[in-house]
Design a protein around this nucleic acid. Structure first.
Length: 574
DNA sequence: GCCGTTTTCGGCCCGACTGTTTTCAGTCG
């Protein structure tokens, strides 16, 4: 069985769960969770790294023991510690931890006292009223467990950023209407621009006598109130989205925003820095003994631990603290840096608007240029262009450009990369274009080797300019196809072509860690809307968020270039 | 299990809310 990073991460997570149920040292448990996270986020494939170099680079949180376990898993596909734990505890028991309200202590009690090992057994025990009899459990806990199991089955897991944004906008307006409310801001993974969010974390500053929590829990989209306190409340909306609201007074705004934005591991790292300086950080401020020394702004919090302000998108404990301390934080790209968009469709294929309407919408975005890149004939469902229709569009664009003021349409194509790596249109017509965007739209299940070779062969084509949505994943719908992204990026560097970060909210493809990889290898990324109508340009903000999570700066992005600077870059091949 | 501008041993972020308890453990973020 091929071992991927995610497999190693899953093994470490399971070990952490089982150790926790065994009441092991919580810091040992954390070490395994950190290692799982490190594996999940690593931009390089561990197996191929080991095959190539024979050892792993030094990774934070991976010491001698975990390093040996990674070797063991890669070489044998198994981990002796996990096998031992499986003998000591029933394997399915980690499923029980997924039930909200059940942590390791309660799972352990349920197993020892009631021999509950599976969700089915848990359900039966709750229905029979056996749980309430356990020490530390009661009638209400039993009821909650029962409810949680039932909703666990058809529970919505994570929400795409674009969907969460819609709920956030209306809720912010609603909360702002409560008396005494000063500021309402969404923190959490939403503010860090993660591609999906599990819940909305909203921070409110308000006068001490504000009734904002009562106002919040009276919101008419609420399906269930999970908790309701004076400073913190949690609810589930009818949509299934959980919302947590936290209220602090105005002087704690910065420290509370920092705390509530996370990520959890970033916060832990910052608080450790504070400890080393004899300081304590909590959501109310930074304290030296009993004295509060900072907290009005996030800048003030970072300042107390000797750091500059770190943008939310970087707060993932992926080395940002060290880089910040050294004064080398990137100046992250912003939406206003984009000078154009290099991937868009019109009515000629599966888009909704005309060439002119798209051009004017791009101009309204402040863009100098917009590339029209229709699908090619192989993608019949999208009414892809054959050579004749593409030539016709080329002529139309030439005519329209003479008429347009302040914006230029570029002639392109989103050409299908066929299974053998050839392109879906002949050279004779591709030669007439300003750029060729290549895309995989079929045969997603090829082996890693074949899929990689297919894409490399397409990129070797002299007219190839940009690889569209390089992993092919659709968030929550379709897994990425299996490719060696590092090889693709290195080949792009050699060939002088580029990778797309597709900003469509269902794609957000390249992934953030792959953006970092492209940057390290010196390959420019093109942040494109893949617009199918004039409104889709607004999705670029999600692409910008993803790019910022990938540490990209203005100079790392192809379409921050002016038209004049861009054109030679599009022509640079081989 | 990891790690070191006090350290190779002894620490490891910090607080709110719930439910069960009668002063606090467990869970969560």
């Amino acid at each position: 069985m091929p071992i991927h990073n995610a497999d190693i991460a899953a093994i470490f997570e399971e070990i952490a769960d089982l150790l926790e149920i065994q009441d092991a040292n919580p810091f040992r448990v954390r070490a395994y969770r950190n290692a799982a996270r490190a594996m999940g986020e690593l931009g390089r494939d561990v197996k191929s790294l080991l095959e190539h170099d024979g050892k792993l680079p030094k990774l934070p949180g991976i010491g001698t023991d975990l390093d040996a376990k990674i070797h063991e898993i890669v070489e044998t596909g198994k981990c002796a510690l996990l096998e031992r734990l499986h003998k000591e505890l029933p394997p399915a028991i980690t499923e029980l931890l997924k039930i909200p309200g059940l942590g390791p202590k309660r799972v352990k009690a349920l197993y020892h006292d009631l021999d509950v090992q599976t969700l089915e057994q848990l359900l039966r025990a709750a229905r029979d009223g056996r749980i309430r009899a356990l020490h530390g459990f009661g009638e209400k806990t039993e009821r909650n467990i029962l409810d949680a199991i039932e909703s666990h089955i058809n529970q919505a897991r994570r929400f795409k950023l674009v969907v969460a944004a819609q709920y956030a906008d209306t809720l912010i307006t609603y909360l702002g209407k409560a008396s005494g409310v000063k500021r309402v801001v969404v923190a959490g993974s939403f503010r860090r621009m993660r591609e999906t969010v599990g819940d909305l974390d909203i921070l409110v500053t308000a006068d001490a006598d504000s009734k904002v929590m009562d106002h919040f829990t009276a919101y008419d989209e609420i399906a269930e109130i999970l908790s309701h306190g004076p400073t913190r409340s949690s609810v589930v909306l009818k949509s299934g989205l959980q919302v947590d609201v936290r209220v602090v007074n105005e002087e704690s705004y910065g420290s509370a925003l920092h705390y509530f934005t996370g990520s959890k591991s970033h916060n832990i790292a910052v608080r450790k820095l504070a400890l080393a300086r004899g300081l304590k950080i909590n959501e109310y401020g930074v304290f030296k003994g009993q004295t509060r020394i900072a907290g009005e702004t996030e800048e003030s919090v970072y300042h107390t631990v000797g750091l500059p302000y770190i943008p939310p998108e970087l707060r993932e404990d992926r080395g940002e603290l060290e880089i910040a301390r050294a004064g080398h934080l990137p100046h992250l790209i912003e939406l206003a840096d984009l000078k154009g968009d290099l991937h868009a469709h019109t009515k000629a294929t599966d888009g909704r608007n005309t060439l002119k309407e798209m051009a004017l919408a791009a101009k309204a975005m402040g863009f100098e240029y917009l590339a029209i890149t229709e699908h090619s004939r192989h993608l019949t469902v999208a009414h892809g262009l054959d050579p004749q229709r593409l030539v016709k569009q080329i002529d139309e664009i030439d005519r329209l450009n003479e008429e347009l003021q302040g914006v230029t349409l570029l002639k392109g194509i989103e050409v299908d990369i066929l299974e053998d790596g050839s392109l879906d249109l002949p050279d004779s017509v591709l030669a007439r274009l300003d750029l060729v965007v290549g895309a995989v739209h079929s045969q997603f299940a090829l082996s890693r080797t074949k899929q990689t070779e297919r894409i490399l062969r397409a990129m070797a084509h002299p007219y190839f300019t940009i690889l569209a949505h390089p992993t092919g994943r659709l968030i929550d719908q379709r897994e990425p196809y299996d490719v060696d992204m590092l090889r693709i990026i290195r080949e792009a560097k050699k060939r002088g072509c580029y990778l797309e970060l597709n900003a469509h909210p269902e794609r957000l493809d390249l992934l953030d860690t792959q953006c970092q990889m492209a940057k390290e290898e010196g390959v420019l990324v093109s942040i494109n809307s893949d617009a199918h109508n004039t409104l889709d340009f607004s999705n670029l903000r999600f692409g910008i968020g993803q790019a910022r999570r990938g540490w990209l700066e203005k100079q790392d992005v192809l379409n921050t270039r002016t038209l004049k600077a861009l054109l030679p870059l599009l022509k640079a091949t081989m």
